[in-house]
Simulated assay, not measured.
Amino acid sequence: MTTWLTDVFDAPKPVIAMLHLSALPGDPGYDTKAGIAAVVARAQRELEALQAGGVDGVMISNEFSLPYLTKTEPITAISMARVIAELLPSLSVPYGVNVLWDGRASIDLAVATGAQWVREIFTGVYASDFGLWNTNIGEVARHRHRIGADDVRLLFNIVPESARYLGDRSLKSITESTVFATLPDAICVSGLTAGAPTDTQALKVVKDAAANVPVFVNTGVKAHNVAEQLAIADGAVVGTYFKEDGAFENQASLARVKELMDAVQEFRATSPL
């Protein structure tokens, strides 16, 4: 299947590595003594490990801005733009951004930093750990057009982490109507939380229902299951597995990045793509 992925990435079934930024100004966990310089320094170390390990792209997110807001404060995207500006001279792979959990702010940040895609919850209404979570894709799509961001690809997470869809609808039905009515550039399928396994059957249901829209496995990808997941999905987003000891809060490990990417290269070499 030929899609926009072939224009952006050099390899088939790309693996996008998450670059999780430390807590930012305004976040409860922000280290005011170390300041933004410490956030930049950690991000630079992580980027070096991810790129040296052979990932196909990176997605920069405010993963440690816990607990998340569904409408973020301006300081969050502003701080992320500062960090990304410092990373740009070192970035050698395609990159995207994700301001959790704010689709409009994510698109704004992409325009400001030259990012090629964003990932967010753009559709649906959910009961979540962060309260009642509503979306307005029509408003977001119009905002995207107004600010000249039509070339910023939108990755829709239709199985959001830490939340449950309020409508009594099947995953197949949600996928079909999302593709028809809201025009996603890709669909992401997740487990319960960051690092939690994505159900293979759910992934297949979405892939079968998504027509020509690319589908990414969004959480729980590991060296031992990446071939199984990529046999179904068009790409993968990987965060937690790349961390030291596979622990969410740790920094990226070059050895773990290479381990998973070696498995990906083996899959690409032995499977029809």
Rank of each mutant, 00 (worst) to 15 (best):
F122I: 10
R144K: 15
A37I: 08
I60M: 03
E63C: 11
G124Q: 11
P74Y: 01
S61Q: 10
Y95W: 12
A52Q: 15
W117T: 10
T76S: 04
T76W: 00
K33E: 15
V111N: 05
T113E: 12
L100Q: 08
A110K: 02
G131H: 02
H143G: 04
A37H: 06
R144M: 09
D102A: 08
M80A: 10
S106W: 01
V58R: 04
T72V: 13
E46L: 03
T72G: 10
A52H: 04
A37W: 00
R144T: 07
E48T: 13
A43N: 06
A115S: 13
G114V: 08
G35F: 03
V55F: 02
I84D: 08
L100T: 05
G103M: 05
I75N: 05
N98Y: 00
H143Q: 07
A127I: 14
L69W: 03
A37K: 11
E46S: 13
S90R: 12
T123E: 15
N134Q: 13
I137N: 09
F64S: 04
G96T: 08
A34L: 12
G138L: 11
L50I: 06
M59S: 03
A127C: 09
R119I: 12
E73Q: 13
A43S: 13
G57N: 08
P94W: 01
Q44I: 03
H143N: 05
V99Y: 01
Y126N: 11
A34N: 09
H145N: 10
L69A: 13
Y126C: 11
P94N: 08
V40G: 01
